[in-house]
Amino acid sequence: MQLEIFQVDAFSAVPFGGNPAAVIPLEQWLPDEVLQRIAEENNLSETAYFVRNGEVFDLRWFTPSVEVDLCGHATLAAAWVLFEQLGEGAEVLRFNTRSGELRVSRDANGLLAMDFPAKQPVAQDLPAGLLEALGLAEARALYRTDDFIVVIDDVDLIEGLKPDFVALSAFDVRGIAVTAPGRGFDFVTRWFGPRVGVNEDPVTGSAHTSLVPYWAERLGKDSLRCEQGGGRKGQLHCELPGNGRVIIRGAGALYMRGVVFL
């Protein structure tokens, strides 16, 4: 069996930026064990698979370790492949996922716009050991959705974070986002997910479904420019339209197209 595979740098207009994701179109679903083994072999933070189902696409995402409920950058990568490589002519792509229906369209500037459900972060006390695991002395606040959102005030600390990933993996959340007001951006973030097999994700679209509601309320604006990453960074344009959704826009760049032999 031969499967076509694409590697797309999501949230970047050029290769070597943003967040790389593998995308594999399928005619029909393979056994879950095979999907997981391919993702493990790819060794990227996410491998996306999709199968056409009438006018929509069934979409799933796998880290090297587990299947996840939502992944923004691999959704953008899958849509980019459909629009730019496979000639999909629909104005709006509809994906059936474990997080409900997700829609992706192209805007007038050529960016892909993802329509995701918003998640309202809930404030809670800092658990023992979290700041130590991140290498931080203090934090402004902690919130929780699927992730911990650690808010700090000093953007300079973001770049220098060197977490203890073993210690972080003990916390029962999908991942830990550390975020601060940015220079040239409304906010910047780094995201760590050792519990799901991704020590650091350069750009995490799904995390912005929680980050954008927080920052929109704090900054009093519903359109935000965001950057995520440490050594490798990507840029997002996000909007909170007030209907319980978050619009996340970004570019994509093809790095590789090939064949998987099974």
Score class of each variant (00 low, 15 high):
180 A>H: 07
55 E>A: 08
55 E>G: 03
180 A>G: 12
70 L>K: 01
110 G>T: 10
191 W>G: 01
166 V>D: 15
144 R>D: 09
119 K>D: 09
59 L>W: 00
50 F>D: 02
194 P>M: 05
85 Q>W: 02
149 I>K: 09
97 T>C: 06
129 G>T: 14
67 E>Y: 01
140 R>N: 11
170 A>Q: 15
86 L>N: 07
174 R>H: 05
85 Q>C: 14
66 V>S: 01
146 D>Q: 15
106 R>W: 06
75 T>V: 02
150 V>P: 04
58 D>R: 00
176 I>D: 11
53 N>F: 01
116 F>Q: 09
93 L>W: 03
96 N>A: 05
149 I>H: 12
63 T>S: 09
108 A>I: 14
180 A>M: 03
195 R>V: 07
97 T>K: 04
66 V>Q: 08
128 A>G: 14
134 L>N: 14
71 C>G: 05
180 A>Y: 06
165 F>S: 10
164 D>I: 15
130 L>M: 13
70 L>S: 04
91 E>S: 13
176 I>H: 05
68 V>F: 11
89 G>I: 05
112 L>E: 06
149 I>T: 12
192 F>T: 10
97 T>Q: 00
154 D>S: 10
57 F>N: 02
56 V>Q: 07
87 G>Y: 06
134 L>V: 11
53 N>G: 00
59 L>A: 02
72 G>L: 02
156 D>W: 09
61 W>Y: 08
180 A>D: 04
185 F>N: 08
152 I>S: 09
58 D>W: 00
74 A>H: 09
186 D>K: 04
98 R>W: 03
117 P>D: 11
183 R>T: 09
152 I>G: 07
182 G>N: 08
175 G>D: 02
177 A>D: 12
165 F>D: 10
59 L>P: 01
125 D>W: 01
114 M>Q: 12
119 K>N: 11
187 F>Q: 07
127 P>L: 13
196 V>I: 15
103 R>K: 12
194 P>H: 05
59 L>K: 01
68 V>I: 13
67 E>N: 01
147 D>V: 05
102 L>F: 10
172 D>M: 11
103 R>C: 11
169 S>A: 13
106 R>F: 02
134 L>D: 15
192 F>M: 11
86 L>S: 08
75 T>K: 04
73 H>N: 05
141 A>P: 12
125 D>T: 12
131 L>F: 08
175 G>P: 01
163 P>I: 12
185 F>V: 06
51 V>L: 04
74 A>P: 08
164 D>A: 15
133 A>N: 11
156 D>V: 10
181 P>L: 06
138 E>G: 14
55 E>R: 09
152 I>F: 06
136 L>H: 10
191 W>K: 00
50 F>E: 03
113 A>T: 13
155 V>I: 13
99 S>G: 01
78 A>Y: 00
155 V>E: 13
62 F>L: 07
168 L>N: 10
85 Q>K: 14
75 T>N: 04
121 P>D: 05
122 V>M: 08
63 T>I: 05
166 V>L: 15
103 R>A: 14
193 G>K: 00
193 G>D: 04
168 L>G: 07
175 G>M: 02
126 L>Y: 11
110 G>Y: 04
161 L>E: 10
65 S>F: 02
140 R>L: 13
97 T>R: 02
139 A>D: 12
90 A>C: 08
180 A>K: 03
162 K>M: 15
